[in-house]
Design a protein around this nucleic acid. Structure first.
Lengths: 192, 192, 192, 192
DNA sequence: CTATAAACGAGACGGTACGTCCGGTCTTGCA
DNA sequence: TGCAAGACCGGACGTACCGTCTCGTTTATAG
């Protein structure tokens, strides 16, 4: 109720995550140190270690704290339009500042920190995949998607090319790129 | 040729890269330090810094030293079979030891070391993309691929789902997975 | 009286001091921390800080709790024999476990904690000095000690060589050493 | 010859010891930290740890670096006068600033650091004891000291009372105190 | 066949950060 | 209300590597 002289648990947790994002944006997430976050947040290092087991875990929570709502799908009845809209949103979120660099850093961490990889999947990738699958299922029932399309692969096929652009070629993720990918995926490689 | 008392330039370079791979396999590429490589290789740290500007660069060269031949495409006239064969080879290479962990570590590095990202693309990704595009172009000319298929996207669309599996979900890359992806990509999402 | 679910004041104080001695004996009084004592004693840190202002103060009280009776002098009429007996007792007490190490630690603390030094003198050294002086005074009145002997120096001269052995050379304090010191002190350096 | 841009070995060692003394004098040897010495000396912490295994060892070397010559005995032929002169010198050195507090701190360290105790004896106490014994032996041969005086005890008996004053009662070590102690020791307790 | 220069191993060095431990203060919630 | 439990800030610990920098010591090429 009051602006207590000492912030308690949750408030402190939030303050640390905000400082992480702020400092990360300033000096880059690679150069980020728990030491520096603690100093900037006016917090003992142990207070951070008590909450997160590694820099990756802290980064991950800081990322998720910014996106608690998730990326929800519209359902206008037109699957192509809905997918495009949702992917536009995802790309706008993850393709540029402030999220892009943070997300890149996180996936980097995930390559050498199993725990980060697991948590990233559980809390970010899987929920998004579930939504995608649900929306595609509805579309398939309406005859807008090939009836034999392998829904389990949906997330990999739809977002794989985008992750490739983000992580490997590291070129900008534009709406135009999304359009081209979607067009190609809908059409398929096989000549009609 | 001989186990000379003092190895010369190229031999030393090779020895360092071998030690990097060996030590990386033992303790993980993330925990690898130039200090440790130097000690294990019986080499001064400066001798490593003289050759590589960063751990990422060393890792990258060590990776490439294992795969000087590259992944060549077969051309049997059947694009679906050829793609499958080539991707099998790629997946066999990058999906397990010794390449998989090293490649993962490298992509991790690439997320916070621009130079590694650029070089990884130039020396590993781009050549493979070129070969893929060339093979698809031939297939398109033979009518085995949709004439309006966007060749620039080929690499992203074909390998994106595999990278997604390797880097994000971090689940095993099996031939069966490759088959399913190829089937889906050839068919497209749109109902026929 | 009872092993009540919650012990009260004095019992708790004793329990903390016992834990201090016990833990100190195990890991050494130097490595002792108030944190560890609190944990071992099943007591909040604050409960210790409420009673003692520093580790030195806690150590000091723990020492005194072991020696509430003090070292009393015999008075057989033979000053040399009485001094020897009393110093034997002191040396037996301070020369070995459990007192020796604790006393050493306390003198260590006293070198950088004024309060410990002052209290150690008031509650341990001074009473012993007073008894020594009183016994020597009686002996002097009986003609057993040189009439011009400087009684103020008695404690320093008699126990100084023992403290030197305990604190500086850190060699065992034996009865034989005490005998030699007393012989030398009674005889004096000057040739007769 | 030149004021080299990078100081080497010995110079750095000296600089660290000087900083230790300087900082110790300012904030007290108890509050001294290797961290702070390193920062003040503009030196990496490891450079200190490479040379000294503990704060006590650093303190000890810093002390000894100020007293490389040792305390030499005069030999005027009058043992009482010579002892007095030498003890005056020792007391002037160790009884007050800048040595006194440092020496006190060192003896404090010696109570919980065996290595410090051993080295303190080997490099400071023992040499002084040797000189004392040598001078007393000469005096004894000249008939100035009781022929049966136990020379092995010389150091303990002569300096014990002074250490008692320095470490236990922690009262000022004055020349007057030295005179009284020497008088008492020469006279002995026994009535003549 | 030396003389000179380059490359080298070894590792010291100033730094930065690590993850841990304690000191001493303050808060919470149970009994 | 008094206490255990322990969160909290702060500071130091001792260690690991970073990338730079001497050291002497080979090694190999140019005179």
């Amino acid at each position: 109720m009051t602006d207590a002289p000492r912030r308690r648990g949750a408030e402190r947790t939030d303050a640390i995550m905000l400082t992480t994002l702020e400092l990360g944006r300033e000096i880059g997430y690679a150069r980020l140190s728990i030491e520096a976050v603690a100093a900037r947040a006016g917090v003992g290092k142990h207070t951070i270690y008590r909450r997160w087991s590694s820099k990756g875990a802290l980064l991950l929570d800081s990322l998720l704290s910014l996106n608690e709502s998730g990326l929800d799908y519209p359902d206008t009845g037109d699957i192509a339009a809905d997918l495009r809209a949702q992917i536009y949103a995802a790309v706008d979120l993850l393709g540029g500042p402030p999220f892009g660099p943070l997300f890149q850093a996180l996936v980097g961490e995930a390559q050498h920190d199993r725990q980060v990889a697991v948590t990233l999947n559980e809390r970010f990738i899987a929920p998004q995949a579930d939504k995608t699958v649900a929306r595609l299922k509805a579309a398939r029932d309406q005859g807008q998607v090939a009836p034999d399309f392998d829904l389990e692969l949906a997330m990999a096929i739809l977002s794989g090319p985008l992750y490739f652009q983000l992580l490997i070629t590291q070129e900008p993720l534009t709406h135009e790129y999304v359009d081209r990918v979607l067009d190609a995926l809908f059409a398929g490689l096989r000549p009609s």
